[in-house]
Design a protein around this nucleic acid. Structure first.
Lengths: 114, 114
DNA sequence: TATCTATTTGGCAATATAGCAAAATAAGAA
DNA sequence: TTCTTATTTTGCTATATTGCCAAATAGATA
């Protein structure tokens, strides 16, 4: 990896890394439809507000979400519509995997029977 | 998060997490064109072969790459073409960020001048 | 069999991440 | 100003990740 390649990989990997946590991914998925404040997300995820705040700052730092302040509450929303595309891509892999596992399962069932 | 939502998020997050490391992302990007063996990737990344092997097992576990053995060498390749879509999505965010930073930069330059 | 080469695995130290509770901020409302 | 509410930051511990070296494995080949 040349220095510039390394920098580029680090920058892009940062985005994937930010999405690579169940709670953060859940947050992103729930921001697809509408914006939410920290306490709402805290409830939805079922984790401490301080924890959610940290997750949101990681997502913000990665350029995935943006925030809007209204009084004391901070509303978070997606910064980029291309997120949906990425999540869909990941879901396709899951689907493939499930299909593969199902196939394997059928194979093993078949072998048990014979 | 309901139990089933949690499981789903964990499954999808696993894929993003696997892509959330500079070396692993670099590997995936370089597998877009053609398959490569561990020692080639070790050279390309500039890390120990054992390290690369570990990274590849993480990618394989996530369903991102598949392997093919030929004699003693193991060739790795992408398991899903949808990866390109995901990487493109991430790159779009980077592009947006760069543009935003450039804009900010211009603003600060303007303010300095005035 | 002995040996070589490619790969994987075990062990270990350094570093990073995650989560909660408590303290600190910020912006309104009484 | 004091109180209240929403959020962020700090401090801390537990856990996970990373990367290298060395050892183990798996296939060729002499």
């Amino acid at each position: 990896m040349k220095p510039n390649e390394k920098l580029r990989s680090e920058a892009v990997a940062k985005i994937f890394k930010a999405l690579g946590h169940p709670s953060r991914l859940f947050i992103v998925e729930n921001l697809r439809d509408s914006e939410h404040c920290v306490c709402e997300l805290s409830q939805m995820v079922g984790a401490d507000m301080s924890t959610i705040s940290r997750h949101l700052s990681i997502l913000k730092q990665a350029g995935i979400v943006k925030d809007r302040k209204e009084g004391t509450t901070v509303y978070y929303s997606l910064a980029c519509s291309c997120l949906s595309q990425m999540v869909t891509g990941a879901e396709n892999i899951i689907r493939r995997e499930i299909e593969a596992n199902t196939a394997l399962h059928l194979v093993s069932e078949y072998e048990e029977r014979s």
